[in-house]
Simulated assay, not measured.
Amino acid sequence: MMKGVSFFVTVAILALASSLASAYDPSPLQDFCVAINDIKSGVFVNGKFCKDPAMVSANDFFFSGLNIPGNTGNKVGSNVTLVNVDKLAGLNTLGISLARLDFAPYGLNPPHTHPRGTELLVVIEGTLLVGFVTSNPNKLFTKVLNKGDVFVFPIGLIHFQFNIGETAALAFAGLSSQNPGVITIANAVFGSVPPINPDVLIKAFQLDKNVVEYLQKDI
């Protein structure tokens, strides 16, 4: 199983690597800039301070654990294990990150956006219904993906992945940013802190006040 997973992850990363010359993150000006939080240790680059190159080791470019399934025992039945610059310091300035996506049967990765990264998804196991919506007009592009299929979600557009099978599903995604960010639409709109004025949401979504108040309490 893991041999197959490694192959597909490699394919996803190599396919995404061809876009790095024009990645959304600024191009690096040095071989690497291992991120470190100590402000006394180096220069501030791409949101992080650079570790002294003399102190860098192979472990700064290493992450372990993507062979472990994520916990899908939640309301939406999915789990995303993101490996970004906060998890793998060596990614700093390299314009790329990776995620493992686990789905319970009929699990959903809800509509969301990555404001700083394009996503390239490869299905390892199961069957996923995926799609994204364009900005203007709001046109839906959707596709059913099976094992070995690949789909790309353009930067910043709302997209989703839904396991339409009766068994668990697994996918990996490469993203064209060291820290692509994620805005889950329902959480952002109904679960912001502090909350958005209910009158705004009532008018925007044409919902009853009680429904809006319920959603704001439940998310």
Rank of each mutant, 00 (worst) to 15 (best):
N71Y: 11
N71T: 07
N71M: 06
N71I: 10
N71H: 13
T72N: 09
T72A: 09
T72V: 14
G73A: 11
G73F: 08
N74R: 12
N74V: 06
K75I: 11
V76K: 10
V76W: 07
S78V: 03
S78C: 09
S78E: 02
N79E: 09
N79F: 15
N79Y: 15
V80H: 06
T81Q: 14
T81I: 15
T81D: 10
V83K: 07
N84L: 12
N84D: 15
N84K: 12
V85A: 11
V85C: 11
V85K: 01
D86G: 13
D86I: 08
D86Y: 09
D86M: 07
K87Q: 15
L88P: 05
G90H: 00
G90C: 02
L91S: 00
N92W: 05
N92K: 06
T93E: 03
T93F: 07
T93P: 00
T93D: 11
T93M: 02
L94Q: 15
L94S: 14
G95L: 04
G95E: 05
I96F: 08
S97A: 11
S97V: 03
S97F: 03
S97W: 00
L98M: 14
L98T: 00
A99T: 14
A99F: 04
R100D: 01
R100M: 12
R100Q: 14
L101V: 15
L101H: 13
F103I: 07
F103Y: 15
A104M: 09
A104T: 03
A104C: 09
A104V: 01
P105D: 05
Y106E: 10
G107A: 01
G107W: 01
G107P: 01
L108H: 03
L108Q: 08
P110Y: 01
P110E: 02
H112S: 03
H112R: 06
H112F: 05
H112T: 04
T113Y: 03
H114D: 12
H114W: 04
P115S: 13
R116F: 13
G117Y: 05
G117L: 05
T118Y: 07
